[in-house]
């Protein structure tokens, strides 16, 4: 995404969000690469040496939760969500439509984040551990909260950009 699309005003903020965007993408790439290696090591160890890296299935499944939830924020920032695009590209209400959708996305992911937090809090208090790795389940569950919260923040930023675009379009008329 080009810096011009960066929704938050001010050079410092724009630089900051561009940098964090790059960083999150790098993190996502490293995690998927690590998952690929863990998968191969586990299957290889089982077939060749008859040993198991215990909990690999859990590690991979939890990592999948992580890349999807972090990726959700990236997809939102890059405005790459899959959608049914019935509106013509030059529809006069597009600017308004985009703003409404950004706001709906913000509201829905914020609600999901708040409810996720409530769940994570209860899970932390409950303290159950995963069967294979024995990690506290609050850790993988927290990924869902983090993903929704980040996405809500990103959606708010895109909504602000949409609002600005709408205003400038109105003033041009």
């Amino acid at each position: 995404m080009s810096p011009r699309d960066m929704p938050i005003g001010g050079d410092i903020l724009a630089t900051l969000s561009a940098a964090s965007h790059k960083l999150v993408r790098l993190l996502l790439g490293l995690v998927l690469l690590a998952m690929t290696l863990a998968n191969a090591l586990n299957a290889g160890a089982r077939y060749l040496f008859g040993t198991q890296m215990r909990g690999t299935d859990e590690l991979l499944a939890f990592s999948q939760v992580g890349i999807v939830m972090l990726g959700l924020a990236v997809v939102t920032a890059e405005r790459r969500h899959l959608a049914v695009d019935l509106f013509p590209a030059k529809s006069p209400i597009n600017a308004l439509r985009r703003l409404v959708l950004s706001l709906v996305t913000f509201a829905a992911t914020l609600y999901a984040a708040i409810q996720s937090y409530a769940f994570v809090e209860r899970m932390a208090a409950f303290g159950s551990k995963s069967m294979g790795l024995g990690v506290p389940m609050v850790i993988p569950h927290a990924l869902v909260f983090v993903g929704f919260a980040l996405t809500a923040a990103v959606a708010l930023a895109t909504a602000l950009a949409d609002a600005r675009a709408l205003v400038s379009e109105e003033s041009r008329r």
């Binding site: 995690v31 998927l32 999948q64 890349i67 999807v68 972090l70 990726g71 959700l72 990236v74 997809v75």
Partner: peptide, 9 residues
């Protein structure tokens, strides 16, 4: 890898 992760998301 990053792009595949984003597409997965």
């Amino acid at each position: 890898a990053a792009e595949a992760a984003v597409l997965s998301a």
